[in-house]
Nucleic acid binder design. Structure first.
Length: 887
RNA sequence: GGACGAAUAGCUCAGCUGGUUAGAGCACUUGAUUUACAUUCAAGGGGUCGAAGGUUCAAAUCCUUCUUCGUCCACCA
């Protein structure tokens, strides 16, 4: 069979991703004979296009899922997308604005129609891209957070929590995005340090000439909504002013000086302006002191009628204007530069406004309790474990969750208000909370009901993902199979996500799991690093530093993308395009090694069972490579089990490239006619495909298909079985010795600048029969690997003039070089070597002479050191003799 | 302000429970190639393991302090 000299991933990738899906290999079902292993995908936004973060996240999941599938688990990888309320609405609003319209121009129904159209047209984009990556999801189950069934779960959860008293409505200061014109949760407001100013404003004291209290603020425009000035009751400077009346400049409102412990006397002037409607702390103070709440702003950030002359100005415009006017009135004392953290909308990056409005909230403390316990007691484990503390710290200080959003794309809040038809009584003011559309008001019977305008936070649906994707709460009683599936696969096994998602999603899923399923949603949480550019900046479209994974797939192949990402994924990844060469080169190496074997080996050799072969019939390199394979297999499995994916790949890389290709395949080059050699080569290759498949599914499936046709698809093969008996310690040790000998000869070759045209011979001088036998048995291999013309093995120290020498273990290589050798140079080299060994020996002997060491160190350490010392002594002796022979 | 992490070759990092002469990839130098692969092979140079103390027979590894970076959280107006 002919293979091209390059791995043409372009011809291969699509073929297999189609093949896997068409053959339904990834469809999971209840199988009592198998253990379940389920992972739910972090649902990407429907607006999403695959970026490096997705590529990393999904490759990790795919490795684990493919690995577990091969290990005999019934694996389910549940895919789907998230409706991403604000993000999606923003996308469609941008389309609208190209037509010169806003969502309010077209109205809610038309806007929703457009949103669904958009979803139908583009919503599968990222799903298709995940298929290109090789993700082995159960695609039949692909869910969307706004599927009808899923939406039922969301409404049901709202009603349940409301009935439990865990959902309430109230007027509070929330994070408001004036551009999106919606409330945001605390997590959705991203704090960034901004260079701003601290403005010192003077508020005149009523009835006193030229007397002021100076307050400091970063947002001077909010002074228009001030309803008090607060000082610390212990602050001696201000004691006399407490309860005095001030005149609020520009709006001429009379406000009181109040005393509140919250005020930090050391900051600013020690006196704080209090704006209860525009600042969370002031809001609390306002409640404590029963102050008036003056809202000076429209939802779009433009000042309203309460702002007097400033009405109609944007908040930042007003800031300038207020300062200018106060300055003219000589009421601006000074301006100091001041850096402080300012919240930004996580979707559009507009500066968030603390804004007073009526919203729905979830009471989190009761939900957090079991979720905290589960992690504290280790029922849920984080990998790496350091994230445990981050999680616990947040959960211990959890605050209520604002879940209403003033947008249209999402799950509409299942609350209705009785508008009444004349006969309405007081009771009808109670909202009607119902999972289904109520027909009439339960109090007055009126059918004139109006649903709450708001929708729910996107995360209020995604926190149900691990069970709502199965069809929970199964209101359709006939849906028995789905119930069984949930019972079988829940709790799921592992969750793979990025650190910034811990609060948004992971913590909330754990809470929902306990609240609605009475159990953890998953037992392991693997937190992977962030993908950054070579300079360490986050990859982002706006920075223009993003590398498109699809471009890498086109140019280097999906396996190259996957392999390169994972081998760099120990912590945060610093990625540039060249980083993907390692994966491309490795996939190509796998391809070419297979090509070599295919060119020499007939397919009948494929039935060779590595695990059952009689080792005694094999040559040393074959025994060695089989043992190396099993050592690697065991370590790779252990690494994946511990979520150490980059380590697993390094092991594979080292084994396949440095051991199998560079040594084994090289040693057998002239021995394809031997009985066992082709079988071992093919056997190791086939088993390597299995071991490598979770990491590089495409190239391995392609090669498996070429080499092992008839055994079925590689992706559903069993993981090679391991047992200690398959290891061959002796072969490993012997082969290491011979590799050292070969390397030593090669070094001498390079050092003496011996080109390939020149043939040299080597004499090995050994002390033990065992070494002699080892060399004799492998002379051909050594000759080939070290490119030697002739080799002899002797047991006496030959006195050879003009010879380069090298010592490996107990074996001395003597290479007569005739005229090429510069005796002085060689002498110096040997002397240097001897000096170094001597130093090592002295250090060792000092340690061995230390009674404490001999007494306290573990016996095997002492034994090892003694052995080493003996070997070093022999070596030093040898080197001295070599020098003598050069005299 | 709090919490957590990192510092090892020019660069990116591994080094897990203290125990051979601290490793890998990239980059660099030199050489090889009618041979499966130049997306290759071989050989080499390059390290006071951030600093200072301490514990120990033994420290890159454990402890303390410091320095420098990073991440997350937080209402200092």
């Amino acid at each position: 069979m002919e293979l091209s000299p390059r791995f043409n991933f372009n011809e291969v990738d699509e073929k297999w991703s189609k093949f896997w899906v068409e053959n339904n290999f990834f469809h999971a079902h209840v199988d009592p004979a198998k253990k379940p292993y389920a992972v739910v995908i972090p649902p990407p936004n429907v607006t999403g296009i695959l970026h490096m973060g997705h590529a990393l996240n999904n490759t990790l999941q795919d490795i684990m899922i493919r690995y577990k599938r091969m290990r005999g688990f019934e694996t389910l990888w549940m895919p789907g997308t998230d409706h991403a309320g604000i993000a999606t609405q923003n996308v469609v609003e941008r389309q609208l604005s190209k037509e010169g319209k806003t969502r309010h121009d077209v109205g809610r129904d038309e806007m929703l129609r457009r949103l669904w159209d958009w979803k139908k047209q583009y919503g599968d984009t990222i799903i298709n891209q995940l298929k290109k990556l090789g993700a082995s999801c159960d695609w039949e189950r692909t869910r969307f957070t706004m599927d009808e069934e899923y939406s039922k779960a969301v409404r049901s959860v709202f009603v349940r929590l409301y009935e439990k008293g865990l959902i309430y409505q109230g007027e509070y200061i929330i994070n408001w995005c004036p551009r999106c014109q919606t409330a945001l949760s605390d997590e959705e407001a991203e704090h960034r340090d901004l260079q701003g100013n601290l403005y010192y404003l003077r508020y005149p004291i009523k009835g006193e000439e030229n007397a002021f209290i100076t307050v400091a603020t970063t947002r001077p425009e909010t002074m228009l909504g001030d309803t008090a000035v607060a000082v610390n009751p212990k602050d001696k400077r201000y004691k006399k002013y407490i309860d005095k009346t001030l005149t609020l400049p520009l709006v001429d409102r009379e406000i009181k000086v109040i005393a509140d412990e919250f005020v930090d006397s050391k900051f600013g002037t020690g006196a704080v302006k209090v704006t209860p409607a525009h600042d969370p702390n002031d809001f609390a103070m306002g409640k404590r002191h029963k102050l008036e709440f003056v809202n000076i702003m429209h939802p779009n950030g433009v000042l309203n009628e309460r702002a007097g002359d400033f009405e109609g100005m944007d908040r930042f415009e007003a800031r300038e204007a207020v300062i200018e006017e106060l300055s003219e009135l000589k009421l601006l004392e000074k301006i100091e530069p001041h850096t402080h953290a300012v919240g930004h909308c996580y979707r559009c990056h507009t500066v968030v406004e603390p804004y007073l409005s009526k919203q729905w909230f979830v009471r989190m403390e009761p939900l957090a309790k079991p979720a905290l316990e589960a992690v504290r007691k280790g029922k849920i484990k984080f990998y790496p474990s350091l994230w445990t503390k981050v999680y616990l710290n947040w959960m211990e200080n959890i605050r209520d969750w604002c879940i209403s959003r003033q947008i249209w794309w999402g799950h509409r809040i299942p609350v209705w208000y009785c508008v009444g038809d004349g006969q309405c009584k007081l009771a009808c003011k109670e909202p009607i909370v119902s999972a289904t559309v109520p027909e009439k008001c339960p109090h007055c019977g009126s059918g004139n009901l109006k649903q709450d305008e708001d929708v729910l936070d996107t995360w209020f649906s995604s926190w149900l993902w691990p069970f709502a994707t199965f069809g929970w709460p199964f209101e359709d009683k006939a849906n028995k199979p789905a119930r069984e599936e949930l019972a079988y696969f829940y709790p799921t096994a592992s969750l793979f996500t990025a650190p910034e998602i811990i609060f948004f999603w992971v913590a909330r899923m754990i809470m929902a799991g306990f609240e609605f399923m009475g159990d953890i949603p998953f037992s392991d949480v693997y937190i992977h690093g962030t993908v950054r550019d070579a300079k360490g900046r986050k990859m982002s479209k706006s920075l223009g530093n993003a590398i498109d994974p699809l471009e890498i797939i086109r140019e280097y192949g999906a396996d190259a993308l996957r392999f390169s990402l994972i081998i760099n994924s120990g912590q945060d990844l610093f990625i540039s395009k060249e980083k993907f060469e390692i994966g491309r080169n490795f996939a190509n190496k796998v391809w070419n090694a297979s090509r070599l074997i295919l060119m020499r080996v007939s397919h009948s050799s494929a039935d060779f069972d590595l695990a059952k072969v009689d080792r005694r019939a094999l040559d040393l390199p074959s025994r060695w490579i089989i043992s190396r394979f099993y050592v690697t297999l065991e370590k790779v499995g252990a690494a994946v089990d511990r979520y150490r994916f980059s380590e697993a790949e390094s092991l594979i890389y080292e084994f396949f490239w440095s051991n199998f290709c560079d040594w084994y395949l090289e040693t057998i080059k002239d021995r394809w006619a031997d009985e066992n050699v082709p079988k071992v080569a093919l056997g190791v290759l086939e088993n390597s495909f299995k071991m490598m498949h979770p990491f590089m599914p495409f190239v391995t499936e392609e090669l498996w298909d070429k080499i092992s046709k008839g055994k079925g698809a590689l992706c559903i093969q069993g993981w090679p079985a391991f047992s200690r008996k398959l290891l061959d310690k002796e072969a490993e040790k012997d082969m290491e010795a011979l590799r050292g000998v070969v390397s030593a000869v090669r070094t001498v070759r390079t050092q003496w600048n011996i080109t390939s045209g020149q043939t040299i011979s080597c004499c090995f001088i050994v002390r033990t029969r065992k070494d002699a036998a080892l060399l004799e048995a492998n002379l051909v291999m050594i000759k080939n690997m070290a490119r030697l013309e002739s080799v002899t093995v002797g047991q006496t120290l030959a006195k050879v003039k003009n010879a380069a020498t090298a010592l490996v273990g107990g074996i001395k290589c003597v290479i007569p070089l005739g005229g090429v050798i510069d005796v002085d140079k060689e002498k110096k080299r040997i002397l240097d070597q001897a000096g170094e060994q001597q130093r090592l020996l002295e250090g060792l002997e000092k340690r061995l002479g230390n009674k404490e060491f001999v007494k306290k160190a573990p016996a095997e350490v002492v034994a090892k050191e003694k052995e080493r010392s003996a070997a070093l002594q022999a070596k030093v002796r040898e080197l001295k003799q070599v020098i003598a022979s050069l005299e």
